[in-house]
Design a protein around this nucleic acid. Structure first.
Lengths: 239, 239
DNA sequence: CGAGGTCTTGAAGACGATCAACAAACGTGG
DNA sequence: CCACGTTTGTTGATCGTCTTCAAGACCTCG
């Protein structure tokens, strides 16, 4: 099986065979997490970064009020905490939304990459920058759209990101996220999430049963969301 | 004058004299922007990154609806678009909130740094990771706090960030941001911003006249905001 | 088959948006 | 240095999105 990280990076730049070997060799071990398990906790000082080979995970913060905010959803090919290599101390958690297969890359190995492979370093740097671009887009959508557009936007984003790593089938994809988790992602109440999804169905834009999401009207959904894929930086350029 | 970027990075790790020289030498030219001027536009492919030596700027997006969302506020010592080195194509704008003095660092020079100075590269990478951590915290606050706590949180954040670069005086700092801009930052209406600020004043937490903000009760403000400075990563560790 | 998790629905109320108008502060030129 | 226009800040009233509380239906899995 090809390394899904390679798929993701090759959308943005050419990887040499040696770089691919280095990436594959960077994986020290592979482990699994059960649905609902935390793979990273705030306050930790990780010594390795975790690359999602299979499954879905979410980065989130807990607040004193008891509320939870999900700040990112990760899919196959995403590092869930590559930034811990430079940030050192975690200020958030990462949760397995589904059973996850995870490759562990020691920070010591990442350090060696920065010493010996400048181009690959820039691509890993790019990876964290893409993450930041996602965060920014969420801020924009959260700040300027109401719940309906915001939800539509998230669905558009996930579809394109999953497509890059070959996890879509036609206009459908699996999304093992409960409405309660979606509420914590969008910053709205569970009840309202439920009504928003019904509205999206009623408008004929999507269907969503269990963990299967189907986009029935991409154009309509994208228009409702004011969706512009620029933030995904799906641009192949030397870096 | 010391390079304010050095101040910021030295909060997190030791810089060698050579690294400081390299950073200073990376500045190709210095220019100024007037208040209200855009220094970066979406769609551009910048060939240099811009380091704010003096003044305030904001990263923002425009939406089809005409609404504007500010996703970051930059102060002295911040690169406003370091990520453009790896992202290549901009998907947002950067506005001068006040008259700004800006150092331009060519991407070609950044590239050389990644080829020859791995440790400095990690620190620059860290710089963009700090940016992402700020974005995440904004997401958390936006999603879980109401307007009052959200506003309080922003004030706490700006105070600590300005303190790092020596731009506070006691418990006061200058913040050349209008209430309309604050509304676009918090994702709430101008009218509501006005009422929130009055409420913060009424509670005896701050005073705010013109561009001068004074924190009158840090503890109270931080409690209201559920503020935890962990996301600022003010931790000095080898990277 | 039972139990817990997940989804759905109704009703009342709160936070914040919008519209509209006015006051205050600021900058510029006469 | 005052006059005037423009930007910024302030206030009131009405309306809508979303929250909270509460309860019931559905579904999945041991």
């Amino acid at each position: 099986m090809t390394n899904p990280l390679t798929l993701k990076l090759e959308q943005r730049d050419r990887l040499s065979d040696e770089e691919k070997r280095v990436l594959d060799g960077a994986i020290a071990r592979i482990s699994t997490y059960a649905r609902g398990e935390d793979m990273v906790r705030e306050g930790e000082w990780p010594t390795e970064s975790k690359l999602l080979l299979e499954g879905f995970s979410a980065r989130y913060n807990l607040r004193r009020s008891g509320r939870r905010q999900i700040t990112a959803i990760y899919v196959t090919g995403d590092f869930v905490d590559l930034h811990s290599f430079v940030i050192k101390k975690m200020d958030h958690r990462v949760l397995a939304l589904s059973p996850c297969r995870v490759a562990h890359v020691p920070h010591e190995t990442l350090r060696e990459i920065t010493e010996r492979h400048p181009h690959l370093t820039r691509l890993l740097w790019l990876h964290t920058a893409l993450d930041a671009a996602l965060h920014r887009q969420w801020l924009v959508t959260m700040g300027t759209e109401e719940a309906l557009g915001q939800t539509a936007h998230l669905i558009c984003e996930l579809f394109l990101r999953l497509q890059v790593v070959g996890q879509t089938e036609g206009t459908s994809f699996r999304l093992p996220v409960t409405q309660a988790q979606l509420a914590d992602t969008l910053g709205i109440s569970l009840v309202h999430v439920n009504r928003i999804i019904q509205e999206l169905r009623r408008l004929g834009l999507i269907s969503w049963r269990g963990d299967l999401v189907e986009i029935k009207d991409w154009k309509g959904l994208a228009r409702l969301a004011d969706f512009d894929p620029a933030f995904l930086n799906l641009v192949n350029k030397p870096r």
